[in-house]
Amino acid sequence: MAAEPKSVNEEDLKLLKERMNLIASADPAQYHNEFSLRRYLRAFKTVDNAFQGILKTNKWRKEYGVAELHDNKELIEKYSDKARVLKHRDIVGRPIIYIPAKNYNSSDRDIDELTKYIVYCLEEASKRCFEEVVDNLCIVFDLNNFTLSCMDYQVLKNLIWLLSRHYPERLGVCLIVNAPAFFSGCWAVIKGWLDENTAGKVIFVNSEMDLCQYLIPDILPTDM
């Protein structure tokens, strides 16, 4: 089941709303809804830090061209085997991003292009959130046929940075399925990059029965 989001101080939320309303009244593109403001407060802890985080995200989105990524058909087609936003949702209604790790190779990719594709996937999944019910995502890393040559640490670093800076509190759960025993060495490295809250959202799923607690196994792609 989805963990209940941490509550935020309502007075802090009121102050953040007031600041954002001033900004958004001058530039509507700066607007964030209340669900987003709550996520930033939970992630950044204080009104000042949340406000600065939002402004930095808005600046990044404009400079990075986030709104135009869905028009980049060449990019989407080129990296379509790296991740997919599924049509189906997990048990609690989260949109799912499915990532088949076997399709990664750090020596055979353009990191900037691949990062843009990851942002595209995060955007598409976020748009599918029913925010009144659940406003976070399920990311599934499928390690079936995974080898060490598939371990792309830089891609993971970029994903972690994106989730922490520009999609705070969007990650609801991260499922690691079909992990081989030797992946424990990789995980020891990756876990060191995560804060305690994020690390607690990573679940190693060891059986189909366990997977059924989170999603229906049949919805996972077999064509990637």
Rank of each mutant, 00 (worst) to 15 (best):
180 P>D: 03
161 W>Q: 07
176 I>P: 03
195 D>G: 06
110 D>L: 00
131 E>K: 07
129 C>W: 09
115 T>G: 06
150 C>Q: 09
157 K>N: 15
143 L>Y: 07
138 C>V: 07
140 V>G: 01
189 V>N: 06
184 S>P: 01
177 V>I: 15
181 A>L: 10
132 E>K: 14
117 Y>K: 08
185 G>M: 12
114 L>R: 03
174 C>K: 05
111 I>F: 06
141 F>W: 15
129 C>G: 00
115 T>R: 12
182 F>G: 07
181 A>P: 05
166 H>W: 08
142 D>K: 01
150 C>N: 15
194 L>G: 08
183 F>H: 02
169 E>K: 02
189 V>P: 05
164 S>M: 08
149 S>N: 11
174 C>E: 12
193 W>G: 02
191 K>E: 14
195 D>Q: 04
158 N>H: 07
118 I>Y: 02
183 F>Y: 09
194 L>T: 11
148 L>C: 07
197 N>D: 12
139 I>Y: 05
178 N>H: 14
132 E>Q: 10
122 L>H: 05
163 L>G: 10
141 F>D: 11
163 L>W: 07
108 D>Y: 13
130 F>H: 10
131 E>M: 03
134 V>F: 03
143 L>M: 13
168 P>S: 03
145 N>P: 01
164 S>K: 12
145 N>W: 03
111 I>T: 07
175 L>Y: 09
171 L>T: 00
161 W>D: 10
156 L>A: 12
110 D>S: 06
173 V>G: 05
154 Q>R: 09
160 I>Y: 13
131 E>L: 01
141 F>C: 14
154 Q>C: 05
156 L>Q: 11
126 S>N: 08
191 K>V: 11
180 P>W: 01
108 D>F: 10
123 E>I: 00
145 N>E: 04
155 V>M: 15
152 D>F: 13
196 E>F: 12
128 R>C: 07
153 Y>W: 04
179 A>K: 09
153 Y>G: 02
149 S>L: 11
178 N>E: 10
148 L>D: 10
120 Y>L: 04
136 N>G: 06
117 Y>P: 07
161 W>Y: 12
164 S>L: 08
120 Y>N: 00
193 W>D: 05
144 N>P: 00
168 P>C: 02
